[in-house]
Design a protein around this nucleic acid. Structure first.
Length: 136
RNA sequence: GAAGCUGGCUAGACAGUCGCCGCCUAGCAAUAGGGGGAGGAAAGUCCGGGCUGCAAAGAGCAGGAUGACGGCUAACGGCCGUACAUUGAAAUGUUUGCUGGCGAAAGCUGGCAAAUUAUAAAAUGCGGAAUAGGGCCACAGAGACGAGUAAAUUGCGCUUCGGCGCGAUGGAUGUGAAACGCGGUAACCUCCAUCUGCAGCAAGACCAAAUAGGCUGGCAUUGGCGUGGCUCGCGCCGCCAGCGGGUAGGUUGCUUGAGCGCAUAAGUAAUUAUGCGCCUAGAUGAAUGACUGUCAGCCUUAGUAAUAAGGUAUACAGAACCCGGCUUAUCGGCCAGCUUCACUU
RNA sequence: GUCCCCAUCGUCUAGAGGCCUAGGACACCUCCCUUUCACGGAGGCGACCGGGGUUCGAAUCCCCGUGGGGACG
């Protein structure tokens, strides 16, 4: 167990290529407010990308709040998540009164994802074509 | 004290745990310590500037903006003062009606309702055009700015004595406006005065990497491009269109500025001058968050009240080069001032 | 961030101050035609994005907002 709960810059996903590769992997888990896309990566940590469109919340304040909350939740859980690239999409907007529900949803999603990703990594190691796709 | 207004300030506070983004110090580094970290509107992008590039942006036209008068300002379509117009209180006054008390009566004194005038504080709006010119004015009406009509009165002339012709007058119908007053409309064109070159930090500068100096078609020094309206001027020398291909990294611009606070002086005020003190965000897939406790706040319940218990985590909303305004959104709280009325001394 | 554009029945649109109680097409509703449906015919329902201003009079002109869309190095 790593002692620090720091969120480093390496754990952030920035480039468009990363985002599109995760989306093209076409695996996801969802709850009422959130959709999480994921792709197992070769690095020693989990990486996070956030997508919150103007459609879900019109105000910049609420969009920024949602980003902060999701980043915070990821920060607490980052060492319990297997090494995947995550993209969290917000499907339905939430505010401060719904924080506890969001936290619960996030935890449930992460345990689900860990479970699924374990299965997937086994498949990936078996199938060489998926590795090729990842290298490209 | 009540009513109606105007202006300003603030935008929950404190403590703790885990984190985010710059800066400074130490360190090879990991990291550690210190200190800082959203707003009054950061918003809309409606105006005005600074700054940067285009020639130090140079001339003219076109286009655009503004418009009482005076002032303030870096500038403004902003602000302040004055004048004019419109609006503006059941608080007061006045009138009318109903009704009560006191009184022999004259009368005095209330209550309710309705109507209405004048206004206060305050809010909103503002150029000229019979005398520069053009356009438009539906319906109604004889007639919409050229002219010209029926009845009435009256003057003159003619008369077959029934009237007819010409001129003048005020008035009628209908109209937003009128019987000639050279109307109304310039938030229709235009004219007058003042201002105005264009683009915007994705401006611009530097570094690195890569591509290219390819192909096809067209025009070519009386030409083309750069200033994205035009002409001249100035600068550069191939240019334009299509096809194909390649980048879309980093540093800087980047926060000390028409800056903020206090005091004094000038001015009715906006504002200005002087002195002293202070440094107050600089992200770039975009930093301020989450949780806990106490006290405020709000809601509900109990209680005459003080208060107690429970809940809610709190308006509008997040800097992106920087300022001055305007407009729009907004839960509350505090302070100051103005007007009218009532009461006390 | 900066710079632009648009808004009219449920949909696509016409409308350059008075002819607008806003026209047309498709859609919807009712009736007729048909044994019935479709086609066709007749009628109806239904809108100027919101608020101010200019004007005698605004869908139209001016200002402020709301919503939607676009472009960039």
């Amino acid at each position: 167990m790593v002692s620090s709960y720091r969120l480093t810059k390496q754990a952030k996903m920035i480039k468009t290529d990363d985002f599109s590769s995760v989306f093209s992997f076409r695996k996801r888990v969802a709850s009422e407010h959130l959709i999480v896309h994921y792709l197992p990566n070769q690095q020693a940590l989990a990486r996070l990308g956030l997508v919150i469109g103007k459609k879900t919340a019109k105000l910049a304040v609420s969009r920024n709040y949602m980003k902060r909350v999701l980043r915070e939740l990821f920060r607490y859980k980052q060492h319990e998540i297997t090494h995947v690239d995550l993209i969290v999409r917000v499907q339905k907007k939430f505010n401060q009164s719904e924080f506890k529900q969001i936290k619960q949803e996030f935890d449930v999603l992460m345990t689900k994802l860990n479970h699924k990703a374990m299965l997937n990594t086994q498949k990936v190691t078996l199938a060489p074509s998926a590795q090729l796709q990842e290298r490209s």
